[in-house]
Design a protein around this nucleic acid. Sequence first.
DNA 1: ATGTGC
Length: 472
Amino acid sequence: MKKESENTYVFEKKGDMKVPLKVFASEKLMKDIEKDRALEQGINMAKLPGICKHAIMMPDAHQGYGFPIGGVAAFDAEKGIISPGGIGYDINCGVRILTSNLGVDEVREKLEEILNVLYENIHTGIGSESKIRLETSELEELLDTGIDWAIKKGYATEEDKERCEENGRMPQADSSKVSDRAKKRGRKQVGSLGAGNHFIEIQAVEKILDKSTAEKFGIKEEGQVVIMIHSGSRGLGHQVCTDYLRRMETEQPEIFKSLEDKELIYAPLGTEIAEDYYKAMSAAANFGWCNRQVMTYETRNSFKKVFPDSDLKLMYDVCHNMAKLETHEIDGKMKKVYVHRKGATRAFGPGHKEIPEIYRDVGQPILIPGSMGTSSYVLVGTDEGMKETFGSTPHGAGRLMSRHQANKLYTGEQVQKDLKSKGILVRSASWRGVSEEAPGAYKDIDEVVKVSHEVGIGKIVAKLVPLGVLKG
DNA sequence: ATGTGC
């Protein structure tokens, strides 16, 4: 890797590579990135058919299935490909923030109570099932219409819809392209948190760095309480990914055989299998938005019980695991590309027509969760990001250790105790869930966000700190 | 990430 400037490294095009690989990282984070196979996977992205301009890795990058997590690649809509490994198993994993009219002191007084109420109403952990049971026909409506289903059922308002990326509904979604097995897994999981790094966190605004933008986003003052929800499409999205990986492998043996890394299986755009995958992926994305929306409904009701005057407004909901057909300026020309963001947040700059009108003049809110017990951030999209990263930023701290390593090194009890000594309460279904997500198992979120800010692909608006965490 | 893998 050649250091190009402060926070940017380039691996020049050579051999089978079609474009260079660009990595946004500080020296410190680059050392973390070099610890696993992530760079090798980044170079593999740059070898795929139809990739445009450059393959990108974010400062939080680490090894994933096929593509690295923290990888971004844009493929020519005609000559390119779509790859499930470039999106991830958790299709439309994403983050939303609810701003509140509550202050840190009043919430701290009843923190244990509100966490308990949330824990009762929102089911967590692996295989967790929500209170809702959907018939197949209703699940199909949810998959086809996204947030519109949630509005119809009373879980969402029109304002909620406006404040979701894509208005919470991928128009290409087609439930008939989702397998019965995936639907069976999804029927009981709408409104469930899941496991891993998924969480609902009650946070306080610690520092506002861009006052006027923060105000636009509904962050009025330091000490204001907000709620962050981080979850995805649960077993349904996972099954969609598995189904299409297998289908692409078996129905395209010549492509499969030719691959150095079999995890990079893809479908050429324009083929039936690529179309089917995009429709199924879009349906899973709709599930992700409905899942976070139903949890929002439960969160609002839970807060009403403990804080009767509370008013929780959706600031924004943004995804970090998805491929989308977008138009970007490449080599001076506007071009249609399928942008794969795998562990990278969609981050559009000022004026983009896909940003809600209320935020359009300043840019899109970018929501970046830290690991459990550390800070999270709100950033704003920039013109620089549109030019450099197809409108993308990092998505979080990024793992430093495998779950296995973390389990060996930490116990859930100790992690919970350490956090409690810092005034942070954790409510979880399993001790293992807590130890796997120990703050020490993750990279430094402050450093990740600093790179994003300094490079200019996303500018820091506000820093948030945890008060209480409900996790899987 | 995931009804974690044999």
